[in-house]
Design a protein around this nucleic acid. Structure first.
Lengths: 246, 246
DNA sequence: TGAGCAATGCCCAATCTGGGGCATATCGTT
DNA sequence: AACGATATGCCCCAGATTGGGCATTGCTCA
């Protein structure tokens, strides 16, 4: 199996086009005993090239179903993947997130489209949309349970290859990271401090603190400090651990 | 090799204490041909139990060197790991980030401590500190280049095991119960809406929206809406997926 | 059937925030 | 030497937020 993984990693590194990578993924998925694969960013797709990475061989109609409901960020499998750093079987979902009725509906509908049980490997890079790479059996077919380690590897390397290809396709605006001072201010903002309090804590003027916070907002395009805190937490610029420490 | 990985994953899942996991990591690192391992969150450590995950067997003195310079978030290897979703050899660093003189100094100093070349596997979970799991050869020794796939697997599963152990260690937080309306308002607050906008969206008066938001703040003891959003996200009253959907 | 709570509404006043603009000093890099 | 990025400072001002208080309606549960 290791040789197969190695071969996939080598091929994936060579690939220069999305279709090529899709082809490779389809082949390896089949060999591992899966009918389907799906490598995607967890964003709502509505046609733009800049939407994000997406490669899959799900049954006809599923993508339309998925997009019509804008499931990218809210699909239960995607949501569960936001809470872990390694792959998991979909049968674990109830232990990972609270499944709402809408979630259950999505899972049932997937079954109706012919999608059975599956494995999903999360792929998160700070500052980018969250993503994942899934492998699924056909409805009714058994999931090759012993393949989690292999799938974990294939999924991770496939996602990285996809990132590389998408970066080549549109190398554009690299989002300027927050400056050190902006992060410091941001931490205190997320801790509920006012501009003035932040200035006293950091030993700078009220106006300068305001400025750093304003620039952090602009970096994220956040209209106010609440959304700023949410966005910065989501992409890892600051973490709950730091913010709520002590 | 796959059996070795499987055995590690099984053992790691059983582990209930950090030291146990460290022991397992040390063993597998040695078997793979590495002298050192380091599994850590990328935060500045200053002694608190809540600082984050950190397990390593680096040479005596290195941790003090590292902490004195607060390298957690700025260490060049850590920084490089923030730009990828799969493991990489440290020899790739110059192609991944711009190495400043300070970075070069850190790498040179690591060599003086006896740390040679290594592999690092990133581990990111939205809303948590970034982290990674590294394996390094002794200074002068060759890096087992063919082990990247194995290291990728061990690193990922080890990090997840560490997250599980640290979560168990954290004291459980009791949830202030929010009313349904409070949660609805809160969602829009976290999305960056003003009181007035929330009132229009929910079809209630400006004053009533203010009231719900105020009461939600009081439930959490949050001094303002930014901290309210952070607290509510942290304990799961609202989730990134709901907030950032669409 | 009365207490408690969720949800709704309104008013006031002090403070905070967000959007402008202007300006200087210090770094690197080019 | 010029440029860009970062960090620092100050001013103005409209609108948003927060912290008080007061009051009604409908529901549930003991």
């Amino acid at each position: 199996m290791f040789e197969r993984v190695d071969a996939f990693v080598r091929d994936a590194r060579q690939a220069t086009m999305a279709d090529e990578l899709g082809q490779l993924l389809g082949e390896v998925a089949g060999e591992l005993g899966f009918s389907y694969f799906a490598l995607t960013h967890h964003v709502a797709f509505d046609g733009g090239v800049r939407d994000g990475v997406r490669l899959h061989n799900y049954p006809c109609g599923w993508q339309e179903y998925f997009d019509a409901r804008k499931l990218g960020p809210s699909d239960p499998v995607h949501r569960a993947s936001h809470g872990t750093s390694v792959g998991f079987a979909w049968s674990e979902l109830p232990r990972m997130i609270r499944l709402t009725e809408a979630d259950q509906q999505v899972l049932d509908d997937a079954g109706r489209f012919g999608i059975g049980n599956g494995f999903t490997v999360p792929a998160h890079v700070p500052g980018e949309s969250n993503g994942s790479c899934s492998f699924a059996a056909a409805q009714g077919a058994a999931l090759p349970e012993e393949q989690l380690a292999t799938v974990q590897l294939i999924g991770a390397f496939a996602f990285e290859a996809a990132r590389r290809i998408w970066r080549m396709r549109q190398p554009p605006v690299e989002q300027p990271a927050l400056t050190g001072r902006q992060v410091e201010c941001l931490l205190w903002v997320a801790r509920g401090k006012s501009d003035w309090e932040v200035s006293q804590i950091l030993g700078i003027s009220h106006e300068t603190a305001k400025r750093h916070i304003k620039q952090a907002r602009e970096r994220y395009g956040s209209s106010n400090r609440s959304l700023l805190a949410v966005n910065a937490l989501f992409d890892g610029a600051i973490s709950f651990r730091e913010v709520l420490r002590r």
